[in-house]
Amino acid sequence: IRVFLPNKQRTVVNVRNGMSLHDCLMKALKVRGLQPECCAVFRLLHEHKGKKARLDWNTDAASLIGEELQV
């Protein structure tokens, strides 16, 4: 999953079965001084340019493999 972060940063996270978005993104956020409780995560909708859909931090990350997200 490719993730666009604040301050023009980005990362790619690996996903294993059973992991939530929170689990996958925790380290990437922590390294940058961010906390999931203070952030929202969105899936970028490529079929609708510029649109995005808000996701819950408990979403199964395996269902988002190959997607691009924005925090």
Rank of each mutant, 00 (worst) to 15 (best):
Q9A: 08
C38T: 13
C38L: 11
V12S: 11
D23H: 05
H46E: 13
A28W: 00
H48W: 06
R54F: 07
N58A: 10
V31R: 13
C38M: 15
P36T: 06
E68M: 06
E68K: 03
R54M: 12
E37I: 04
W57H: 01
L55A: 03
L21W: 05
Q35L: 10
E68G: 03
T11V: 15
R54I: 09
S63C: 10
F42I: 03
E37T: 06
G66Y: 01
G33I: 03
A40T: 12
V15S: 01
A61C: 05
H46F: 05
F42E: 06
N14C: 08
M19Q: 14
A53Y: 09
R2Q: 09
K30G: 04
P36F: 04
R54E: 15
R16N: 12
C39K: 02
V31E: 13
R54N: 05
H48F: 11
L55V: 12
R10C: 15
G50W: 09
D56K: 02
N7D: 13
G18T: 01
N14L: 10
E67K: 09
C38F: 11
S63W: 02
R10K: 14
A62M: 15
A28G: 03
A62V: 11
M19E: 11
R43A: 05
I65E: 06
D60M: 10
R43V: 06
A61W: 04
I65T: 04
C38W: 07
T59W: 02
G33M: 02
V12L: 07
N14V: 10
R16E: 15
V13L: 05
N14W: 09
A53H: 09
L64K: 01
P6W: 00
R10F: 10
F4Y: 12
K27F: 08
Q70N: 04
V31W: 06
H22D: 02
E67C: 10
V41I: 08
F42Y: 14
V31A: 13
N7M: 06
C24A: 09
H46P: 11
Q9K: 09
K52Q: 15
N17C: 14
D23W: 05
V3E: 00
E68F: 04
M26N: 14
E67Q: 13
I1W: 00
N14G: 11
V12A: 07
L44Q: 11
N17H: 12
E68Y: 05
S20G: 04
H46D: 12
S63R: 07
S20A: 03
Q9I: 11
M19C: 07
K8T: 04
W57F: 03
M26R: 14
S20M: 02
K30T: 14
M19Y: 09
G66T: 04
G18S: 05
K51W: 09
M19T: 09
Q35F: 09
R43M: 06
K27W: 11
L34T: 01
V71L: 11
H46G: 14
N58P: 00
D60V: 01
N17T: 14
L29D: 06
A53M: 14
V15K: 03
K49R: 11
F42R: 01
K30F: 09
V15G: 06
A40K: 12
K27C: 08
E67A: 12
L21Q: 03
D23M: 05
Q35K: 14
C24Y: 05
K30M: 12
Q9M: 06
K49P: 12
K51F: 07
A40G: 10
M26K: 14
L25T: 02
L25D: 02
G66M: 01
C24W: 03
V71C: 03
I65V: 13
P36M: 05
Q70R: 05
L21M: 01
L5H: 02
L21H: 02
L55R: 00
A62E: 14
K27P: 15
R54A: 15
Q35R: 13
D23K: 08
M26S: 15
H22F: 04
L69A: 01
W57Q: 04
M19D: 11
I1E: 02
A40S: 14
V71I: 09
R54Y: 11
L29Y: 02
V12F: 09
G50C: 13
E37W: 05
P6E: 01
R2C: 06
V12G: 02
P6I: 07
F4Q: 10
G18Q: 06
H22I: 08
K49S: 11
R16S: 14
K8A: 12
Q9T: 07
L45T: 13
A28P: 12
A28I: 07
A61G: 05
L5V: 01
F42W: 04
E68R: 06
P6A: 00
L45I: 10
G18M: 00
A53S: 11
V12H: 06
V3L: 07
L25A: 01
K27Y: 08
K30V: 12
G18A: 02
